[in-house]
Amino acid sequence: MTRYYRPSSTADALSALAAEGGGARALVGGTDLLVGLRHHTIEPTLVVDLKAIADLPEPIAVGDGGIRVGPTLTMGELAAHPVVRRRYPALVEAALTVGSVAIRNRASLVGNACNGSPAADTVPALLVHDASIAIASRAGERTVPLHDFFLGPRRTLCGPDELVTRIDLPRPPDGFGSAFRRLTRRRGVDLATVSVAAGVDRDGRVVLGLGAVGPRPLRTELDAPFDAADVPGLVRALDERLEIATPISDIRGSREYRHAMVRVLARRAILAAADRRTSGEMAA
């Protein structure tokens, strides 16, 4: 039997989570949780709705050092935010691929990024933008880099009695470009077969975030700087670097296909990201 609880403070939420001994689940957008409830793949004793908590970080705060995203910021709000659109184009592109308009009106960035799905659309972009996350427990708060956060499918550093309360994105250095590319089975709303985000800085340093090609999202960098005049060199570098991908075959795609596609998408994302370095803004 599931109960519903809408605490008004973080402390109350954490106490409630702890009291359930692992049986509770936090709820923000509910776009994953309710699917699990319907199929009885998740049968929490308590659903803790975080949307009425007064002392959580605000949905989005823009500072000189970057942005801070609280647990209740929706994908729709994220993708519409002018500063996010200007500075984090890969993240905007990724957020806009999450479900439909109605899903994006509910789904939160924190929920999408932090529930441990290896195919979560926003994670590769967050990795490229060097996100870190804050985890609150009754013992206090700790901050970890996002790329350390994932342990395996649906397993993260966030314990059952803890909450992710914030995602911090540092301000990208001047001249940093980013882009997100994703492959799906149809053009409309779909889950990712493979997704890749790329970031390229002014000096050509390339960072990649990879989704759906392993048990957890991956972040990697290329050794050699990007050189627009040497795409064959880029292809060779990617071929080698992307050996780290360990995709499985499943209903959305075979291992072989994912291996090939992560390379194609990575190249495309890098070229798009590199193109954005001058303007630093999303193409219309």
């Binding site: 809408r6 776009t31 308009v101 899903i103 509910r106």
Partner: peptide, 19 residues
């Protein structure tokens, strides 16, 4: 099942009534 919740389109099947 699309409805407007506080003016925003949402899937009513993915919202708990309690919310």
């Amino acid at each position: 099942c699309t409805v407007l919740l506080d003016g925003r389109a949402v899937n009513a099947c993915l919202v708990l009534c309690a919310e």
